[in-house]
Design a protein around this nucleic acid. Sequence first.
DNA 1: CGGCATCCAAATGGATACTG
DNA 2: CAGTATCCATTTGGATGCCG
Lengths: 119, 119
Amino acid sequence: MTANPYDEACAVDPALDVLFGKWKTSILYVLFHGTKRFSELQRNIPGITKKMLISHLRDLENQDIIQRVVYPSVPPRVDYSLTEAGQSLEPILELMHQWGKKHEEHLKRKRSSEAATLS
Amino acid sequence: MTANPYDEACAVDPALDVLFGKWKTSILYVLFHGTKRFSELQRNIPGITKKMLISHLRDLENQDIIQRVVYPSVPPRVDYSLTEAGQSLEPILELMHQWGKKHEEHLKRKRSSEAATLS
DNA sequence: CGGCATCCAAATGGATACTG
DNA sequence: CAGTATCCATTTGGATGCCG
């Protein structure tokens, strides 16, 4: 019995925290394609800096979305891959991706029709 | 033919922009329950300030996720409701909500089992 | 009641240089 | 190669007061 029927609204946050941040989804999208090294991630995400990449990788690792494996070689090699939990995010991301594409078109149509109606 | 197979990763962003921001999902969750006045939204989202509520409502309005209707009465009355596009987000939010709940439990189990294994 | 303006604090993002 | 550390810019969030 909660006093406020919308209290549950906050309950979506744990899921969103996983995806929030400027680069989280890009990282996940790259890792959906398989295990990647640090430098591969950096190459495949145009514009990301090492600092941002590391910090987002750490976040995702702490939430058990991705796994980090260090090979004690010289030069060092570190592999990142999705955990089971991370893989379970793929359908959701895919759904959002589809929605986003449709919505983009929708907005474009709507805005051009609005422009045509301007007095 | 894109040079980089991960270029499409960026394509998820339009969808995420809609949800990003500290309060967007809370607003949507309240509006899933039906049309609400400005003051009702403010009451039902504990901790939000007028400034944040307005700015997020404007964002959502600009993306045609919600609709704003002004009644020229005294005192003024403004109603916010979901557009069709906004309603189409409900299954996605619901999915994320479910995922978030499961993931929360998963993390809890994992962390307690890790604590038990400590040396 | 709904909303804008101002001012301020905190979080986030980024450039650069350095290290094992 | 895979990070750290430092410093700085931008963005975001928030408190408060005023207005039609």
